[in-house]
């Protein structure tokens, strides 16, 4: 099972931009240890939320055909804490998408207030197994792609996918 740190996408523009949300709740066990009596979503997990938004945007932009691997967090700045009850608005913009990988800027806001900003770099992993067989897509496998279309994808791109002219 994957640990999703986004709840759904609101908007995805292929090759350009994505907007997703993530609700933080007290039902998340780990928040009770971070910190006892003062729950705060760890900044490392905020980066993961941003990376999932950005990585899925990069993957979707290439029809989920590439293994998109987070390889570098070039910049990460945190402006405030993320606490239970907050709804993170996660935005990612593609700076460049090329054969070797993808470069994106991402940010998280709560009620219009900047919470975190990051610059992320992903590489396209193309390898082969010791047997010489090409490596299958283990990042966006079939299970992920069907979950994405059933649960995460925004209505706008679902409609496009289902319209006869898109086929």
């Amino acid at each position: 099972m994957r640990w999703f740190l986004i709840d759904k996408f609101i908007e995805i523009q292929k090759g350009k931009y994505a907007k997703a949300i993530r609700n933080i709740t007290l039902g998340e066990d780990h928040l009770h240890d971070h910190f006892p009596t003062f729950p705060v979503m760890p900044n490392s997990l905020i980066i993961e939320s941003l990376a999932q938004t950005a990585g899925i945007l990069a993957g979707y932009s290439e029809d989920f055909e590439q293994n998109v691997i987070l390889s570098k967090i070039t910049k990460a700045v945190f402006h405030r804490m993320a606490r239970p009850g907050d709804q993170l608005l996660l935005e990612a913009r593609i700076v460049d998408l090329r054969d070797e990988g993808a470069w994106l800027d991402a940010s998280a806001t709560v009620d219009g207030e900047m919470l975190a900003e990051a610059s992320l770099m992903f590489v396209h992993w193309r390898g082969e197994l010791p047997s010489g067989r090409p490596l299958s897509n283990f990042v966006f496998n079939e299970e992920f792609v069907s979950f994405f279309w059933a649960n995460l994808a925004p209505p706008s791109i679902k409609e496009k996918k289902n319209s006869p002219s898109a086929r």
Binding site: S71, K72, T74, D96, R98, E100, G101, W103, M121, V123
Partner: peptide, 13 residues
Amino acid sequence: SIDFLDIVFRLEK
């Protein structure tokens, strides 16, 4: 090692 890819990208751009 990963920085070399990033540097090449930034130089190109």
